[in-house]
Every structure is written in structure tokens, then in C-alpha cells.
Design a binder for these strands. Structure first.
Lengths: 210, 210
DNA sequence: CGGGGGGTTGATAACCTTCAAATGGGGTGG
DNA sequence: CCACCCCATTTGAAGGTTATCAACCCCCCG
């Protein structure tokens, strides 16, 4: 069934990057759009004095660079080694204009990102350090969860500084909160930057909503 | 030119509400979508214990209720008396499916809201109380600014509690920060909940980015 | 005149940050 | 193969920004 082939596949170009590589920076000309095939990407904004807010961790299936603006409004870097698909913006625009299905898909993606952003606003504005961290771990666990699998150990490839800048905390506070969860038997830190949730119910209770 | 008439106008129904009226609540069935014609609407999320995060103040031209989900993911209430246009979701969906122009418009709206949400994440996660408040005032001023007009006095119809819950602060901190801006000659509080920016440059400097 | 709600100011306390130092683990070079 | 170094992580102590608790003011409205 060639007719149902993904029209995006025609114009996409594969791209492989190792860890901690920049994809683009805030204020660059936004001429490319990416989708993540594997690995993890972080996107962030900076204040003039260097304070950083990570506004998202992107994984397989996520898009980035879908800016309406002429320039990117955030910077993007790989967290782990990544496989990406790169699209040129004007080519993508052409496909969007001619294919309502693609348009719907991108709208759904933007709408979903908006939902996540609003959830994150609640977290950043009103949750305590422990609640933030538990919410974060809970999301990691839920995103990781595949039907059928019942593993409670999840990969956490980003460093403490990334977690801190995602949750609006400092590295030290993230560490201390993790330690507290560890000593109270809620989680366990494993090798390979993995984490095991020993008590999902308590984790959810501590998170006060996702 | 009837052909260029807004297809949304056909299915919209006018609606007038006084101040502090609820439009819908989080978890309600999302069967209606609204656009704001005049006045101001606030949308918010709650934690189980009552902590509130306002995730947006909506004004003329803004849409709300554009959820992908079957239920609303936030609550909406009027801040001031409002004129709204109400659409039934399945009717709106029909128009979207048949009219690429409308689809593009809604995508642009969602994308713009996402940009604002990401800017707000930076504010909530990384800015100090004064920076938050200055950013907020700056946005109010910029949104209010009409070409040609050079007034520096802007309406601020929401109460202190709303501002606090929008910026992730308490009422007291908002008050104190406003007082500080007042005594340092950056702003002036006027009657009718209006505010005058006496020193835009200083306000912008204190805000550290919008 | 009394009541009530929003706003402001003050005092105290808590949470989180900042500054500092110790620990540990991974990679490289000898 | 081991030693060393670098850097991320962890832990500790002190401090600060903001929250909490409380009182007061002011204006509107019943």
C-alpha cells in the first residue's frame, strides 16, 4: 500500500549524533525541524545571566523546532546518543499544505506539548521539591511503561543538573530529595543511571498529581 | 465578498457573562470551545489540597477549551465581565475537517500558546519574585499596546491572588514587590485597577527577558 | 453602623539556595 | 593493569528569599 506511506518519509534525512551535541540554539534561523527516532534530546531557554530552564526532554516520536517564528525560541542538545530525522522547513511546509493528514498530526503534537507544558507550569509554580521530583519520576516511569512489561526499573539518562534545571531546583536539592526517597524505601538507584520504583503508590501520593 | 466570511461565525453563539463566573471545570466533558470577544478569562489547574496555578489570562481573540482530550484539563472563569463566542465541539470539528484555513488558524493559535507556556516555564522555574512581577507587567503593557497609542497606563483587572497564583508566589509577596516597584519609582498604581509604567527601561531590565 | 473581602504591612519561620568540601566512578595514560 | 585525574554526585553548614501567620487598613455594600 504505497498510498498510505508517510509523506514525511520522502523529505526526511537521517541524522545520528552522539551525546551532548547541540542541534540548534535559541535565536538561530529556524530552517530545520527534527523528529527523534531514538535517544533523548533536551530543549532549554536561558536568562541573560546564565540561569537555565529546561522546557522538555524529548524521546522517540517527539518533534522539535516546530516554531511558527522565523527563529528558534529555545536551544536543543542531545542528552544521549541520538538518531534523528531532519526536515527542511520549507519542504515540510509544502507537505503540510498539501496533506491534511500531516497537518492534523502536527496539530495533535502541538496540542499535546501544550498539555504537558501546562502540567509543568503547575509543577514549577506550586509543587515542593519532593513533589516535583516524584512527579518527574512518575512521568519517566509512565512514559517508559510498555504494554505487557511490568518492569519498575527505568532509565534516567540525564544528569542531576538537567533534572534540577527541568524542575526549577538546584543540583543539591535534587540530590537531597533523591536521597530522602532512597532512605524511605520509595526508590532505588541502580547502575547505568537507572532507577527502580519500589513503591509506586507512595511515589504517586508524594507527587500530588502527575 | 461572502465567500471570505469566517466559517466559524456560522456555528458560533454569543454569550455574555459577568465577572467571576465559571465557564467549565477541569475534568468536565469537553463539549464546548470558546473564544473571547471582550473582557478577561483566567484558566487554572488545582492540586488536591487546593493549591492553584493560573496557566493563562485570556483576552480578545484568544481561544479556550481546544482540548484534544475528552475532558477539559483546566478550569476557566471570567475575571471581568466578558463577551464570548461558544462553539459546540463536534460542529467545530466538522468545520476544521472541511476547511484547511480554519485548521491552520487553530494550529497557529496552539503553537502560539505553546510559546507563551514555554516562556512562563522559564519565569516560574528560574526568576525571582521581582523578576516575575516585572515580566508580568511588561507583558500586560505589550499586549495592551496599540499602534499609535503611547499611553503607559494599563488595566490590571485581576486581583492580587490571581497574580500570585499566576506567578507562583503568595499574595503577600506580590504586594511587597509591587510596593518596592512603587517606592523606587518604576510604576504607579492608579484608580480602577490601572497601573502606570513610569520607567519602561528599568522595568524591562528588572524583568530579565520578557 | 456593622460586616466582609481585598489589599497592605510586620514578624517569624521554613524551605531551598549558596558556598564548601568529601566521595565516588569512569576514562586515560603510563 | 593500575594509578591518577577529572568531574558528577553527594553531603554538610550557613544564609537568604519567600512563605506563613497575624494584624490592620480601606472601601464598598448591606
Amino acid at each position: 500500500m504505497k498510498a498510505t506511506a508517510d509523506p514525511l518519509a520522502r523529505i526526511g534525512r537521517s541524522l545520528v549524533l552522539e551525546k551532548d551535541q547541540g542541534l540548534f540554539r535559541e535565536a538561530d534561523i529556524a530552517d530545520r525541524v527534527f523528529s527523534v527516532s531514538s535517544g533523548m534530546v533536551r530543549i532549554h531557554k536561558l536568562l541573560p545571566d546564565g540561569r537555565r530552564q529546561i522546557i522538555g526532554f524529548l524521546q522517540s516520536g517527539d518533534f522539535l523546532g516546530l516554531s511558527i517564528d522565523a527563529t528558534y525560541l529555545y536551544s536543543a542538545e542531545t542528552v544521549t546518543a541520538c538518531a534523528l530525522i531532519q526536515y527542511h522547513r520549507h519542504q515540510l511546509q509544502a507537505v503540510i499544505d498539501s496533506d491534511p493528514g500531516v497537518q492534523r498530526r502536527l496539530y495533535a503534537i502541538a496540542a499535546h506539548e501544550l498539555i504537558l507544558a501546562q502540567e509543568q507550569m503547575l509543577l514549577l509554580g506550586r509543587k515542593t521539591a519532593i513533589e516535583k521530583l516524584c512527579s518527574f519520576l512518575l512521568r519517566l516511569a509512565r512514559r517508559q511503561r510498555r504494554p505487557g512489561t511490568e518492569v519498575t526499573t527505568i532509565p534516567m539518562p540525564m544528569g542531576r543538573a538537567d533534572i534540577a534545571d527541568y524542575l526549577g531546583l538546584t543540583v543539591e536539592t535534587v540530590c537531597r530529595s533523591l536521597t530522602r526517597l532512597k532512605t524511605t524505601g520509595v526508590i532505588r538507584l541502580c547502575e547505568n543511571n537507572r532507577i527502580e520504583c519500589l513503591d509506586m503508590a507512595r511515589l504517586a501520593a508524594l507527587a500530588q498529581s502527575a
